[in-house]
Computed example of a mutant assay.
Amino acid sequence: MKKKTFVMVIIALVAVSFSSMAQRVDRTNFKAGVHLGIPFGDISDLSNFELGLDLGYHWGVSELIDAGIATGFMNAFINNDTADFGPVVVEGNFPNIQYVPVAGAFRIYPTYDFKIGADVGYAVGINDGNTGGLYVRPIIGANLNSTTEINISYVKISDDYDFSMAALGILFLF
């Protein structure tokens, strides 16, 4: 219940803070895409790859800056029934590790075709035993054309274990 209330408060704050920006700037973008991640850290003992969906809505704050909201779905596929955490080996039937991030997003555009930025918020744990945690995702992207972006990112979720990964994604702008 606390997790659900926390997520709703974040969504409300982000929506209220960006509603005034949307009134001042006429450029908006809905973004949807997918990414493929390679886990490392503690999670690499359980999973070899992650697949995710990215959704976002950005408002143009200026010619050089966008701000918005980001969400999606991340699923780290478990590769076996044994996890090796150094001296401790754990056996069992592990579920896929799943998160739904709820984040604020910002992008800086040094040029029209290149962008850097980050998504920062909370990743809600979906599978049993997953408590979720602070979500940070720095991103570097490049426009392939006016409606398609390719990006690389680093994802870090501060949970009971180290959920870190490098990801390659493609986004479509609507």
Rank of each mutant, 00 (worst) to 15 (best):
F6Q: 05
S19Y: 14
V89W: 04
P39A: 05
N143S: 14
I140S: 11
L51W: 07
Y109I: 06
T131K: 12
W59P: 00
Q98M: 15
N79Y: 02
H35F: 15
Y161D: 04
G92L: 10
A22C: 10
I38C: 00
D159E: 15
N48G: 10
F18I: 14
G169H: 04
M8P: 00
K4F: 10
I139A: 01
A32E: 07
D128G: 06
G169C: 12
F94Q: 06
E149D: 14
G33C: 12
T148N: 11
A67D: 04
M165L: 12
G33F: 10
V61N: 03
D128N: 14
N96L: 09
V61I: 15
A105S: 15
V100I: 15
I157F: 07
G37Y: 08
N151R: 13
F6S: 04
K3G: 00
F77T: 00
I140R: 02
L55Q: 03
A15H: 06
F6M: 13
L13S: 13
G125H: 03
V9R: 08
L55W: 04
A167P: 03
Y135E: 08
Y112P: 01
F85G: 00
I65L: 15
I10H: 04
A118Y: 07
N151V: 05
G60E: 08
M21G: 10
V9I: 15
I139Q: 06
T71R: 04
E149S: 09
D81S: 12
V136G: 04
K2S: 12
S47E: 08
K3I: 11
N79T: 11
H35S: 11
M1F: 10
M1Q: 08
D160L: 12
D81W: 01
N79M: 09
A12W: 03
T71F: 09
F94L: 06
S62A: 13
F114V: 15
T147G: 06
A22Q: 12
V124A: 08
G125T: 06
G56M: 05
A76C: 06
T5V: 11
D54M: 12
E50K: 05
T148A: 10
P110R: 08
F18G: 03
I139G: 01
F114P: 10
V102C: 06
I170K: 04
A32G: 14
Y154Q: 12
I43F: 07
I139N: 02
P95Q: 12
